[in-house]
């Protein structure tokens, strides 16, 4: 009676998405048509994600057929987005968008395990669209909210109480179960993700404060960090220049995670186009 239900597009910051490494199929693992999910450290079960950020580069890395790869940056880091012949509209869009530009991406998270065992998360785009900065701002606020909600859910679960399940019990699908599973798998450091959310929000606040104060926005590319280094520099200069009331924040802003390790995976995906 239920029929087909479309999967919700989860809001996840790039850093959290990249820290994810637990993928599973719903229910019966053997059923190849069961939807596949990626469980993130804060317990978001995603079959689909929606992200907005700055497209900083895009290349056709395919051979005979086009295979586009783009890099989308949000305040917490970058994520690779792919579109090939099976995502013609997204590939077309990537072709036409000249970076840097704000883009919105709807897509499926993809987990790839390299030969040395490390896991790389990318997004296979269903749709890519150029958007304006107000959409990008709205997304950061919304993603911060959703992430915070998930962190709250994690707080209510204690790791040492694995629900002992009877064989009778059908696998329940609920945020609480996802949170529990995430905690058990990732031993999630909720403080870390809380800090991530706060950093994203303070950088957004700085951006908006900028606009409101009618600061010259002659150089749009400056507005968004292309790498964590420039981003961090920018935020720092603003927080000193504008003398934000919450001065304690300066310290946490300095501690951007060093997590750009996927820069050197140029070719990993070509052999395994699927």
């Amino acid at each position: 009676m239920a029929g087909f239900l479309r999967e919700v597009a989860r809001r996840i910051f790039a850093e959290e998405l990249r820290n994810s490494n637990l993928a599973f199929r719903d229910g019966d693992d053997l059923n190849q048509y069961a939807p596949q999910y990626l469980l993130t450290p804060t317990g978001a079960r995603c079959n689909r994600v929606f992200l907005v950020g700055t497209l900083t580069e895009r290349d056709d890395i395919g051979g005979d057929t086009e295979y586009w790869r783009g890099r989308v940056i949000d305040p917490t880091g970058g994520i690779l987005v792919y579109a090939g012949q099976y995502q013609p509209e997204a590939a077309q869009a990537l072709t036409n968008i000249e970076p840097p530009a704000f883009v919105a991406v709807v897509g499926k998270p993809n987990l790839y395990q390299t030969e040395d065992g490390s896991v790389i998360i990318s997004v296979r785009a269903e749709a890519i669209q150029k958007v304006d900065d107000s959409t990008r701002n709205r997304w950061i606020l919304e993603t911060a909210k959703r992430t915070y909600e998930r962190l709250e859910a994690l707080k209510n679960i204690s790791l040492a109480s694995p629900e002992f399940s009877t064989a009778d019990k059908p696998i329940a699908v609920s945020p609480a179960i996802d949170a529990e599973r995430a905690l058990a798998h990732y031993k999630t450091d909720t403080m870390h993700y809380k800090q991530m959310v706060l950093r994203a929000l303070s950088s957004l606040r700085a951006d908006i404060g900028n606009d409101n104060a009618k600061f010259s926005s002659k150089d749009v590319t400056i507005e968004v960090p292309r790498t964590p280094e420039t981003g961090h520099l920018k935020v720092k200069s603003e927080s000193t220049g504008k003398s934000r009331s919450k001065s304690t924040k300066g310290a946490s802003l300095d501690s951007w995670p060093e997590a750009e390790a996927d820069d050197d995976v140029e070719t990993f995906h070509i052999g395994k186009k699927s």
Partner: peptide, 20 residues
Amino acid sequence: DSLPVKVNEIDDLMSLIEVD
């Protein structure tokens, strides 16, 4: 269209998270 994000929306959320 959704309204552009306002500074107080961010501040509200930040203080909510910080006191937590």
